[in-house]
Design a protein around this nucleic acid. Sequence first.
DNA 1: CAAAAAATAATAAAGATTGCAATTTTTTCA
DNA 2: TGAAAAAATTGCAATCTTTATTATTTTTTG
Lengths: 138, 138
Amino acid sequence: MAEKLTIPKGYRKTKQREAILEVLEKAEFPIHAEDIYLKLKEKGIDISLSTIYRNLEMLTKEGLVVKSYMMNEDKARFALPDKKNYLVCEKCGKIVIIDNCPFDKFKEELIEVHGFEITGHSIEVYGICPECQKKNEN
Amino acid sequence: MAEKLTIPKGYRKTKQREAILEVLEKAEFPIHAEDIYLKLKEKGIDISLSTIYRNLEMLTKEGLVVKSYMMNEDKARFALPDKKNYLVCEKCGKIVIIDNCPFDKFKEELIEVHGFEITGHSIEVYGICPECQKKNEN
DNA sequence: CAAAAAATAATAAAGATTGCAATTTTTTCA
DNA sequence: TGAAAAAATTGCAATCTTTATTATTTTTTG
């Protein structure tokens, strides 16, 4: 849980940058650029949306953050790499992170079959969460 | 290969619709709305981009088509469901479809751990293809 | 503490997607 | 077959997310 995220080498330390990293650390699943903007606004930290986008781009390039798109959404989400594989409930939209991603078992198979050198992956699973299953028993 | 795609029940048969389905059937990997537009233009079929978007939305809702976003691209791609899991080369952008997706083996595990009723999934793997590995031996 | 480099803010611009009103095409059924 | 009704398409405007730009502010360096 307590990831020790620091601003990557070669980049300056600014309060905006640290605030963005803090929001990403606390987030329980991938969030939108605007979510970061609003969360910081709540805390009284005024920041420009473009600063958020610029920093997210940098953090993604540096590998500290993973960008993803979710089912039927036309805007990107950002998360720390350990939150990049998730289940989404089609009814209520709940997002549940997949820990211990079973992907590694596939990896070898994929390397063998396709010859790719694999550097990353992202898995999105859709379904209906237990609560919504109970609600909609029809 | 020869998927038998038909316009879903309750929708009218139009040449635009059939043309869009044909392009999707022939595509080897997920493509952009604009790719469909250009492919049809080549064939002399003049169609409006908004018609393409409207139909893609309908086909996605009906489950005939899967929408996805690719690494560092800010526009959606569309494909038949059997092409939704793929490898992307980070160097040359080549896309290779993953057949016989090993996901089913995980499915049971995910159901057990999270209680979700699973309806779908999508896997994107990044890496470097064999050709680019050879080129960049440095 | 002053100069140089980097980052931020604010706004404009770009690009993808959706909405809308008018027109055209399909379907229906008399 | 051939109106009439329903649905779909067009063309364009509007919207929304993301990127680019430029002036200003903040950090860093020595």
